[in-house]
């Protein structure tokens, strides 16, 4: 039978960071607290700490990414790790080599940690179940399933700006169905005890039984935004227009675009978030993305500290496993 949660090692500690699902409030809070400590590192003139000195972090990107990959690279470098970035988008897996074969080759590079991005939901989970036990896995985004470091940097941003989750109303707008950012974000918000999580968008962009995630569904964006503390936009993938999910970007903007007028329905001190890159004039007005309520660039900055926190925590737990494995030999 399948082990219930592969994120935890034999010492019941977080060994991989694959999804928010299965993690409790204490674990999430610990990550956020650890990230707080790293924000000061990033403000210093010399931005390195030696926590991962001598360790190798390999970025395995089976799917295109610039932002996430760069943020992981920077986080690993600031922890003094050696960083290896392998672009797998156009390489072996396209030539018919199985993911498992690729994995075995990469294991032979003797890295300590893999950061994985893949277009299949469950890919990070699969890799974690099949990789050597001494390697830590961080999910950098798998299909439509999870993007847990994005969720944690979003939580970090919200906590910094707004404090106590139990008093907050958070609204997520747009393509929930195809979004791993939304899934992980919702899971984190619910676990951290957010008072209300609302999702809003047309039925074509909602997954089946979306309420089962613990959210309230709205069709009307004006009603959804009423008295919101946090407003999160999502990137609308261009391929959604070619399929029959929405008629056009202009119609989407008319119906669900985050405009200055609509932002007035939220609380006056509400913040605006977006995982980037933004489609201005599609899901968000430029004046809102650049406005004073926007924390979009802070999210990017905090992303480094949060990824440093996740990396250092699981690398530490990985050390225990590596020692245990050494003692076996």
């Amino acid at each position: 039978m399948i082990k219930s949660d592969p994120q935890f090692n034999q010492f019941n500690k977080l060994h991989h960071f694959l999804s928010i699902d299965g993690l409790d409030k204490t674990t999430l809070t610990h990550i956020l607290d650890t990230a707080e400590g790293f924000t000061s590192v990033n403000d210093k003139a010399i931005k390195n700490v030696p926590l991962l000195r001598g360790k190798t972090v390999a970025n395995l990107f089976f799917e295109n990414s610039t932002r996430t990959r760069t943020a992981f690279e920077l986080a690993a470098k600031r922890l003094s790790a050696d960083v290896l970035t392998i672009d797998l988008v156009s390489s072996s897996t396209k030539k018919g080599e199985s993911l498992l074969d690729t994995l075995r080759v990469l294991e032979a590079l003797q890295s300590d940690m893999f950061v994985v991005r893949h277009s299949d939901s469950g890919a990070a989970d699969f890799i974690a179940r099949h990789v050597a036990p001494t390697i830590n896995i961080i999910n950098g985004g798998d299909g439509q399933h999870a993007h847990p470091t994005q969720a944690m940097l979003d939580m970090f941003t919200i906590r910094r700006c707004k404090g106590d989750f139990s008093k907050l109303c958070v609204v997520i707008i747009g393509d929930i169905r195809h979004s791993r950012v939304a899934r992980s974000g919702i899971a984190a918000l619910v676990t951290l005890g957010t008072a209300e999580v609302r999702v809003v968008g047309p039925q074509t962009l909602m997954p089946a039984d979306v309420e089962s995630l613990g959210v309230t569904v709205y069709r009307d964006i004006d009603k959804a935004l009423k008295d919101a503390d946090v407003v999160m936009g999502l990137r609308l993938q261009s391929e959604r227009m070619s399929s029959a999910t929405i008629p056009s970007t202009s119609e989407f903007y008319q119906a669900y675009g985050l405009t200055p007028e609509r932002m007035r329905l939220a609380k006056p001190d509400a913040i605006v978030m977006h995982p980037g890159p933004t489609n201005r004039g599609v899901e968000i007005a430029a004046s809102v993305a650049d406005g004073k309520q926007s924390v979009i660039l802070q999210q990017v900055t905090y992303g480094i500290a949060v990824r440093m926190a996740v990396m250092s925590i699981i690398m530490g737990h990985g050390e225990e496993v590596r020692e245990a494995e050494m003692n076996k030999e």
């Binding site: 939901s121 089946a208 089962s212």
Partner: peptide, 15 residues
Amino acid sequence: HAGSVATRLGLPGIP
């Protein structure tokens, strides 16, 4: 199956 489990796992559903 397009339902709560596939939604949580981000798996494309079959309604």
